[in-house]
């Protein structure tokens, strides 16, 4: 038998605390909390992404990449390194461990596919795109852009770190907002449980006073009510969390291609529903599993505190 359940003491907590209101309200709170948790997980992943890998990325664009660096008077013999080769040679001076990769035609075409479609774009004057991944704890030399532009005029250096910092700050702000939202949801759950407990206490006032007079301890009476609200909280939160999984799965399926984009991978296809479980972060699944227990604990501790405070009026 579960603790404090089915006691023949007249408290009839299942009637004093009916399941409809508290169960439904906790389910709604948990639904919101699950969505917020998903948002928080996303914001945290973004923050980590911009704090780590993305900040180490540099993209270099070289217009007219195949043109020789220095125009010669003899147009029949355009020898000498091309503009792209010159930039690649300059990039050899970067710190050891740096990965420099010039996108080939197919990679470039795939990159431009969302804008230009699958049409043949070989006639377009596309620049060379060079991706650079610096080793951890190294920085792009301050004079890299100056050096490249001096050697190969028109070269554009896009360093992610400059706007990555702003994105990281944005992600951290989102994380803080999610935390505040979770606190608010927890606060509302506490308030709702408190109101339900107060209503339950007022309907059982006489019986509580009789039991108190017969030697029932505060722990016994509080435990009877708290066990009931904890069970309602657990059930309600479980229902709310499961319900929240539906929109979240759709959202994850839509967001999966963007979440998967990495230096090496550039697939933009929606994942199959069956493989979706591999995309959902483990820490988020753990948070979802913990949510009903957290809700049950909030209900339990709120009711325990309220009943014990209420009993203080009796000696």
């Amino acid at each position: 038998m579960m603790p404090f359940s089915g006691r023949k003491d007249g408290l009839s907590v299942s009637e004093a605390l009916p399941d409809r209101s508290l169960f439904t309200l906790v389910a709604m709170m948990s639904f919101l909390a699950a969505l917020t948790l998903a948002g928080a997980t996303g914001a945290r992943a973004l923050s980590a992404r911009w704090a780590g890998g993305a900040a180490q990325l540099v993209t270099v664009q070289v217009p007219d990449p195949d043109q020789p660096l220095k125009p010669t008077s003899n147009k029949k013999d355009p020898t000498g390194p091309s503009r792209a080769e010159t930039v690649l040679a300059d990039l050899n001076t970067l710190p050891p461990g740096t990965v420099v990769h010039r996108l080939d035609k197919e990679e470039l075409a795939r990159l431009l596919e969302p804008w230009l479609g699958e049409a043949d774009n070989s006639a377009l004057p596309l620049p060379a795109i060079i991706r650079i991944r610096l080793p951890d704890r190294t920085q792009v030399p301050n004079d890299l852009e100056q050096t490249l532009t001096a050697h190969v005029p028109g070269t554009i250096v896009e360093h992610n770190a400059s706007w990555g910092e702003r994105l990281k700050a944005l992600a951290n702000s989102l994380l803080a907002c999610a935390g505040l939202a979770l606190l608010t949801v927890g606060g509302i759950a506490t308030l709702v449980t408190g109101l339900a407990t107060r209503a339950g206490l007022s309907t059982r006032r006489d019986i509580i006073e009789i039991l108190h007079g017969l030697g029932a301890s505060d722990g016994y009476i509080a435990g009877r009510f708290a066990w009931r609200t904890a069970m309602l909280g657990l059930g309600g939160s479980l229902a709310g969390t499961v319900l929240a999984m539906v929109p979240l799965l759709v959202l994850f399926r839509m967001a999966a291609p963007f979440a998967n984009i990495s230096f090496q991978s550039d697939t933009l296809l929606l994942p199959d529903w069956k493989t979706l479980q591999n995309v959902i972060p483990t820490d988020m699944l753990v948070a979802f599993a913990a949510l009903p227990f957290a809700a049950a604990f909030i209900c339990w501790i709120t009711t325990q505190s309220m009943v014990r405070l209420w009993l203080r009026r009796l000696p």
Binding site: K8, D9, G10, I210, G215
Partner: peptide, 20 residues
């Protein structure tokens, strides 16, 4: 008397022992 109306005679009488 202060009996608990929802309980039977036996359950009312048993309360002090059950609480102990």
């Amino acid at each position: 008397y202060k009996l608990i109306p929802g309980l039977s005679v036996a359950d009312n009488v048993a309360l002090p022992l059950r609480l102990q």
